[in-house]
Design a protein around this nucleic acid. Structure first.
Lengths: 192, 192
DNA sequence: ACCTGAACACCGTTCAAGT
DNA sequence: ACCTGAACACCGTTCAAGT
């Protein structure tokens, strides 16, 4: 839209703007459409300009992923103290709902063994603390958390219909109930 | 290696050979390297020749996936009758081990809501029957199976290190034990 | 430090044409 | 029916050069 820039002329971008554009592309075109070139196009810059703000496409995916996880509401300290496993349940359910709004992102998430971003780390810290308050040792808590995360991300991936695809045999409500059933089985096993 | 073919000259391919070449490429280059062009290259044909045997790259991925699932050993009818949940456990564990040998394939698997191929269907039929023998109604068995499958594929995806990447913090033995712990939690919940 | 221009080595897919 | 040739519209990434 603006006048084209010559070499040496700056666009005034920063990493946050690149990330925001990436999330826009993700929303409009899904994860398969989330290319560096598409992001650059949306920002009105040359394709390789992105490399000034992010090291590679994988780094961009990681950053977007972590950005999405910021939407997950964390329980207050009081909630954790009162009902630790209930807090864990709330975290997993909130994560499921958030991830479900971003179909296509979870496969690469699992591939990467979970995000190492700050938001993901914070979710992990709170979950581990709650599991500790529920009586688990730290190694046991880590084991339990891994199972819970795999279940949550996996079910979100399974539940997510690619954008613009036919409704599928199961409704979103049924899928969510199915996820909750599995989650409660796991929490029962963890509590035992 | 052979003499180049002109237009109209046949290569004598069939779908099985295309699939076999695809599995070779998958083994050597991982899922990111599994392109139609790479398969064509390995077969010594033009890139678009593949379209005579498979409709698209997604169809090829589906077919390869289902091919891999053929390696999962199914329990005998006797095993299912004697210990239905033990048979389910064996199916899931065998699936985990097989999928783990093909890192990178699971993300697209989850994305597709599981393979609809014949091998996957057969696995589903046997699992559902075993769950029925364990006392579950059909809707309950379907729900339980979904949770079990998500857990298995998800943990395999989580456990799989991309080919040629550093060892990672957890060993394969630890990851397998972690998967089994979650699997048994789920089976306990299902049995209740 | 941040950007453009140009290039390299790739993709999936389609269409026409040959036997 | 099965294949080649050529093309189209894409990719991620690198390198040199400009301010």
């Amino acid at each position: 839209m603006a006048r084209p820039r010559g070499p040496g002329e700056r666009a005034g971008l920063d990493t946050d703007q690149v990330l925001a554009a990436a999330r826009d592309v993700l929303r409009d075109s899904g994860v398969s459409g989330l290319s560096l070139r598409a992001v650059a196009r949306r920002l009105g810059v040359a394709p390789n300009a992105i490399y000034s703000h992010v090291g590679s496409r994988d780094e961009l995916l990681d950053a977007v992923l972590d950005d999405v996880l910021a939407e997950v509401r964390l329980p207050f300290a009081g909630e954790v103290a009162r009902d630790p496993l209930g807090a864990v349940r709330a975290i997993m359910l909130a994560s499921y709902d958030v991830l479900l709004r971003h179909p296509g992102l979870m496969p690469s998430y699992l591939d990467r063994q979970g995000s190492r971003g700050v938001q993901a780390q914070q979710l992990g810290v709170v979950t581990l603390e709650a599991l500790g308050r529920a009586g688990l040792t730290e190694p046991a808590a880590r084991e339990a958390m891994r199972v819970l995360i795999v279940n949550t991300i996996g079910f979100a991936a399974f539940s997510a219909r690619p954008t613009g695809s036919p409704p599928g045999v199961m409704s979103a409500v049924e899928l969510r109930a199915n996820f909750l059933r599995g989650l409660d089985w796991l929490l029962d096993g963890i509590a035992r």
